[in-house]
């Protein structure tokens, strides 16, 4: 491939894959500047490697949320003591008799 061809493809892709893979989290958070977003989307539409990378990141996020352990008690063991403490912390001091 001649240097001219390389230059043409480089322009077509807008940014290198090495840059595109660094923009993925900002892209997903919708935090890219309009210019970066346009470059990223054009690159993505032409680059199978970065499409696969984005899909992998999306699946990593899903799998991470699914890895959450479910063996967690809804109430702590000391809940009754907490209720007592709530009563004494929030009750007005007795002033009578």
């Amino acid at each position: 491939m001649s240097e001219d061809d390389t230059f043409f493809i480089d322009n077509e892709l807008r940014i290198a894959c090495a840059d595109a893979v660094e923009l993925v989290t900002e892209f997903l958070d919708d935090a890219l500047s309009p210019e970066d977003r346009a470059n990223f989307e054009i690159h993505l539409s032409l680059c199978e490697g970065c499409q696969a990378f984005l899909d992998q990141i999306n699946r990593t996020i899903t799998l991470t949320s699914e890895s959450k352990t479910t063996t967690v008690d809804v109430l702590p063991d000391n809940f009754d003591a907490l209720l007592d403490a709530l009563d004494s912390a929030t009750s007005k001091p007795e002033t009578g008799d």
């Binding site: 491939m1 390389t6 894959c17 090495a18 840059d19 680059c47 490697g49 970065c50 696969a52 899909d55």
Partner: peptide, 13 residues
């Protein structure tokens, strides 16, 4: 062909 900074092939699907 494109050199550094580009996927030689897509990562696994």
């Amino acid at each position: 062909d494109f050199g550094h900074g580009y996927w030689p092939e897509a990562p696994p699907r």
